[in-house]
Simulated scan of single mutants.
Amino acid sequence: MGGERPIPKQVNRQAAQWFAERESGDMTAQDEARFRQWLAADPRHARAFERAAAVWQSMDAPMLAPIPRPARREPGRRMQPARGHRRQWIGAAIAASLALFIAVESDLPTRWRADVMTATGEIREIRLPDGSTAMLNTGSAIAFAPDGRTVTLLKGEAAFQVAPDPAHPFSVKAGKGASTALGTRFIVRQLGDGARVTVTEHSVRVALARKSAVLREGEAIDYDADRLGASRPVSVADADAWTRGRMRVVNRPLGEVVAELGRYHRGYIRVIGDDLAKRPVSGTFDVRDPVGTIDMIQRTLGIGSTRLTDRMILLHC
């Protein structure tokens, strides 16, 4: 009694891509035939496709095409919309947003390991057993030792305010590195297989393999699996603005700003076009209302958008 076999990540990605191509209206008769072959090749393909459709509907997004059934071929009544760049944008955005949601919902290993997790758009502060506090940013997870003095950042970002206890150092592990508090406040953000450490008060020692660096207030450092970067100055007010539900930017490219806002949005936001993505943006924005912030940026820059509800927003000239 093995039950249903789990769906591999690759199959989920394929299902998201097929769903996107059907919804965007760019499939030819040959594409439809290949899709039907893929659907019938493995029962998990049909399950994955139905899951992609269910995730899309859970985003309050409109269904632009009927859900196919692998057992028999439905007559092709649907008119194929004209091909064009706009349809390609929509298809790519649907695929990316579905893949993102399915990956988040399938993140069971992190859920099993985590003591605390935050959902997309949620910012939450908790008290650790030793009296220190950890504020988790959107889509983040931590695990901690029983005494609270060793924390592992499993995903996302967290800000720590450390309770003093010289006999028991407070450390945060992320990737292969560790950050040990020499003061009281610092932020750790996961970056791929490494992390970024930012000190907002006093100092922190960051160690990776046999290398280490001491950061002072207003400094940050990045590391990956093999390399510890150089420390650099940062604005503390900008770095910890998210702990107050804000995001402060000065002449940052629109693409970067939108990507950062996307962390707080239960949906998909993308800038279309390299020139537009490079356009500088400055301001203080409310990360608790990413759609309202996007609306304000759109009006300020005088640019357009294509939307399938507020869950999927494509900004363009």
Score class of each variant (00 low, 15 high):
Asp295Thr: 04
Asp274Ile: 13
Thr306Arg: 12
Phe285Ala: 04
Ile297Pro: 02
Thr300Ser: 13
Asp275Cys: 13
Leu276Ser: 00
Gly304Glu: 11
Leu308Gln: 01
Arg279Leu: 10
Lys278Gln: 12
Asp275Gln: 14
Arg288Leu: 08
Ile303Asp: 02
Ile303Arg: 01
Ser282Arg: 10
Val281Asp: 08
Gly283Pro: 06
Arg279Phe: 12
Lys278Glu: 15
Val291Phe: 04
Asp274Thr: 13
Val287Cys: 13
Asp289Thr: 13
Asp286Asn: 13
Thr300Tyr: 11
Ile297Ala: 03
Arg299Gly: 09
Thr309Met: 08
Pro280Met: 11
Val291His: 01
Gly302Ile: 01
Gln298Pro: 02
Ser282Val: 08
Met296Arg: 15
Pro280Ser: 11
Arg311Leu: 04
Asp275Asn: 10
Ala277Ile: 10
Met312Asp: 01
Thr300Asn: 13
Thr309Lys: 07
Ser305Asp: 07
Ile303Glu: 02
Gly283Leu: 02
Asp286Leu: 06
Asp286Ile: 10
Leu301Phe: 08
Asp274Gly: 10
Phe285Tyr: 12
Leu276Asp: 00
Thr284His: 06
Gly302Asn: 07
Thr306Cys: 03
Leu308Pro: 00
Arg307Glu: 07
Asp274Lys: 14
Arg311His: 11
Lys278Asp: 14
Gly304Gln: 10
Val281Cys: 14
Asp274Met: 14
Gly302Pro: 03
Gly304Met: 10
Gly302Phe: 07
Leu308Ile: 08
Met296Cys: 14
Asp274Cys: 09
Asp275Ile: 09
Asp289Trp: 14
Asp275Tyr: 15
Asp275Arg: 12
Leu308Thr: 00
Thr306Gly: 05
Met312His: 04
Val291Tyr: 05
Ser305Ile: 05
Phe285Cys: 02
Asp295Lys: 05
Arg311Trp: 04
Leu276Arg: 00
Gly302Thr: 05
Leu301Gly: 05
Asp310Cys: 03
Ile297Gly: 03
Asp275Glu: 15
Thr293Ala: 11
Phe285Trp: 09
Val281Trp: 13
Thr306Asn: 09
Gly304Tyr: 13
Met312Cys: 03
Asp275Lys: 11
Asp274Ser: 12
Thr300Leu: 15
Thr293Met: 15
Ser305Trp: 06
Arg279Pro: 13
Phe285Met: 07
Thr306Gln: 06
Gly292Cys: 00
Asp286Gln: 06
Phe285Lys: 05
Arg307Ala: 03
Ile297Gln: 04
Gly302Trp: 00
Ala277Pro: 07
Leu276Ile: 03
Leu308Cys: 01
Met296Ser: 14
Val287Ser: 11
Gln298Tyr: 01
Ile303Val: 09
Pro280Lys: 13
Thr309Asn: 10
Asp295Pro: 05
Thr293Val: 13
Gly283Ile: 02
Arg299Asp: 10
Gln298Val: 05
Asp275Thr: 14
Ala277Cys: 14
Leu276Val: 01
Thr306Val: 10
Asp275Met: 13
Ile294Val: 05
Thr309Leu: 07
Asp310Glu: 11
Asp295Ile: 02
Thr300Ile: 15
Asp295Gly: 00
Thr284Gln: 12
Lys278Pro: 11
Ile297Trp: 05
Ala277Thr: 12
Pro290Cys: 08
Lys278Ile: 15
Gln298Ala: 02
Leu301Cys: 09
Gly283Lys: 05
Asp295Arg: 09
Leu301Trp: 06
Val287Glu: 10
Thr309Ala: 15
Gly304Trp: 15
Asp275Pro: 15
Thr306Lys: 07
Ser305Arg: 12
Leu308Phe: 08
